[in-house]
Design a protein around this nucleic acid. Sequence first.
DNA 1: AATAAGTCTATAAATTCTATAGAGTAATGG
DNA 2: CCATTACTCTATAGAATTTATAGACTTATT
Lengths: 137, 137
Amino acid sequence: MLSKKTKYGLKALIYIARQDPSVPVLISDISEREQIPKKFLEAILLDLKKFGILGSKKGKGGGYYLLKDPKTVTAATLIRVLDGPIAMLPCASHNFYERCDDCPHEEKCSLNHFLITVRDNTLSLLQQKTLYDLTMA
Amino acid sequence: MLSKKTKYGLKALIYIARQDPSVPVLISDISEREQIPKKFLEAILLDLKKFGILGSKKGKGGGYYLLKDPKTVTAATLIRVLDGPIAMLPCASHNFYERCDDCPHEEKCSLNHFLITVRDNTLSLLQQKTLYDLTMA
DNA sequence: AATAAGTCTATAAATTCTATAGAGTAATGG
DNA sequence: CCATTACTCTATAGAATTTATAGACTTATT
């Protein structure tokens, strides 16, 4: 399951992507409209900024705005940034790979093989879906 | 990501399914071979028993054994029993559905729609894979 | 200068996950 | 029927992660 952080982050991004790109969006605006705790949201947006997805402007007339074309930002990227691995076990992860302590030979682990298949499958769906797609009803 | 409980549970089941079905398998045997904390494993196997997947016998010569044909037990069932929902959000779950507090109309939520698609996709893979398949190298 | 709005650090509350201890119960074999 | 074996049950505790909040600070605008 995705964390609330991830859900909040996705909702916030969809909200921002739907606004006029020339006007920065206020945290408090997103917080109210999407029912996201403001301070929690601040941290999430800051994270998205660190990863180069959002930009921000301080002071009056400031706020957050997208740095990328919503059509080029995939759900896979967003989930990885907000939530972490897409795979069901670390040993089946592409970006967050970690060997199992116990596993003597991963090449012979049927669970590992299967979960890599599941991951690839999920990934292809997540890579097809863009932020732009998500802004459409 | 799957919890350790789930990973342990799956490993234990694969281990049991590989043994002679006429001889109950000892908890301590599984614990040692698969490097699973014994007390934790006890609780997990008890869970699997409650769900009718495993049976047990007390006393000398006792242990755990499968109640079902490994070819009829799917990865989907096991993950649901051990880990919970397969969907990425409660509102996209079939067996553990929960409405989002905030969401005004789910029918119009693009995230909900998309995550249901992802779930269906994952589910079909998980339903195809049986415990028997997992016992094969 | 006043105000608006994001930034940063710290921390705390809540929840979930992982793990362990120990007494209890049932089955077997001798 | 007793000793041993092995699962069962209840309780609990430690650890990690998630969720959330507070408040001082910085930057930008007017």
